[in-house]
C-alpha cells in the first residue's frame, strides 16, 4: 500500500495538504470567471502551487525522493507553455458572449 510505503513526517505532510486545499479553493475562480483569463489564472496557480506540493511530497518520506524533485523541475520548465498558448492562441474577443459575467 502506497500510504504505508511513504509515511509523512514533520511539517511537509500537513503543508502539502494545506497547499492542496489552497488549490481547490482557487478552482472557485475557474468556475466564476468572468473572463477566460480569470479561469486560466486558476490553472496557472496550479503550476506554481503544484511545484510546491511536489517538492513537499519529495521531502515527505524518509530522505528526499529526487525523482519528485525532477518532476517539479520539469513542471517549472514547462509551466509557461500553457499560459503562453492561452495568451497567444486561445483567447479571442469573440468569446465574450460565451462568458457569462459572474
Amino acid at each position: 500500500m502506497p500510504v504505508e510505503d511513504r509515511p509523512m513526517t514533520g511539517l511537509e505532510g500537513p503543508l502539502a495538504l494545506f497547499l492542496l486545499l489552497n488549490l481547490l479553493a482557487a478552482l472557485v475562480r475557474a468556475a466564476r470567471g468572468p473572463t477566460a483569463a480569470d479561469r486560466m489564472l486558476a490553472a496557472l496557480l496550479f503550476g506554481t502551487t503544484g511545484v510546491g506540493v511536489l517538492l513537499l511530497l519529495a521531502h515527505a518520506g524518509d530522505g528526499v525522493s529526487m525523482p519528485l524533485v525532477d518532476t517539479a523541475l520539469v513542471l517549472a520548465l514547462l509551466a509557461a507553455i500553457a499560459g503562453v498558448a492561452f495568451a497567444r492562441r486561445g483567447w479571442h474577443k469573440t468569446e465574450e458572449g460565451h462568458d457569462d459575467p459572474a
Binding site: L77, A80, I81, V84, A85, R89
Partner: peptide, 8 residues
C-alpha cells in the same frame, strides 16, 4: 515542449 514554446 521546447519546440512548442519556440513556435509560440
Amino acid at each position: 515542449g521546447a519546440a512548442v514554446l519556440l513556435h509560440l
